[in-house]
């Protein structure tokens, strides 16, 4: 494990926990895309099926379980406990336009044509675009709460750190996963516009609002 890998994991964890605590503390999920959170729950479920077949380390297993539990808890809060605060009218991204092509692609391009590997590949492709419903919602309402932008920042930062980790592992360990790297590049590119707004607005104490 290297520093980019560890800080990537911690950044990912920070994002998930920030979102969960924001919803819990404010008793509201206003401004959060429920569809996006459903996609992330699907991402974790399909990627971590290897929990049932292989053991890597205590760290690996615990983090996977925490990610899965937090993502399901978030979905529960949005669609059950604080359903009344869910802003469904603005959460109108058509997720089937992501899930269907991504499903097809994972059948066509994968490392091994086995159920577990296809599902894992599916989760990597899906994760790279799973933020789109949330970004779409922000573009529709034209603004985001500052705490929501912190969530997005850590979620984006995690994948960028993982890319550096991939380069590190390629040079020092000789291992390389093209699928994960390409998906990671796509995922990071999708955050660039947001990163720009986060640095130029939110970090200077302003609210993230888009021009009408």
């Amino acid at each position: 494990m290297n520093i980019f890998w560890l800080t990537g994991d911690l950044s990912h964890l920070a994002a998930i926990v920030i979102l969960l605590l924001k919803i819990w503390k404010t008793r509201s999920c206003a401004g959060i895309s429920g569809k996006g959170q459903l996609l992330f729950a699907l991402v974790f479920t399909t990627r971590y099926l290897d929990l049932l077949t292989s053991f890597i380390s205590l760290y690996n297993t615990s983090m996977k379980l925490i990610y899965i539990a937090c993502s399901y808890a978030t979905v529960y809060l949005i669609y059950m406990k604080f359903k009344a605060t869910y802003d469904g009218n603005h959460d109108t991204f058509r997720v089937e336009f992501l899930v269907v092509p991504v499903g097809g692609l994972s059948f066509l391009i994968n490392h091994d044509f086995s159920p577990l590997e296809i599902l894992c590949t599916f989760s990597i492709y899906l994760e790279s675009v799973a933020i789109l419903p949330q970004l779409f919602m922000i573009s529709k309402t034209g603004e985001a709460e500052t705490i929501t932008t912190h969530y997005l920042f850590f979620l984006g930062l995690y994948r960028a750190l993982y890319l550096v980790n991939s380069i590190w592992r390629f040079y020092f360990e000789g291992c390389f996963d093209l699928i994960a790297v390409v998906a990671g590049v796509v995922q990071t590119i999708l955050y660039c516009d947001f990163f720009y707004l986060y640095i130029t607005k939110v970090l200077k104490g302003k609210k993230l609002s888009l021009p009408a």
Binding site: W5, D9, H12, D50, S54, I56, S57, N60, M63, K64, Y67, H111, D112, C120, I124, Y162, N165, S166, R169, E173, C175, F176, D177, L178, I179, A180
Partner: peptide
Amino acid sequence: GREAARKDEL
């Protein structure tokens, strides 16, 4: 290995 990198990552 090619895809070995992914197996121990999250």
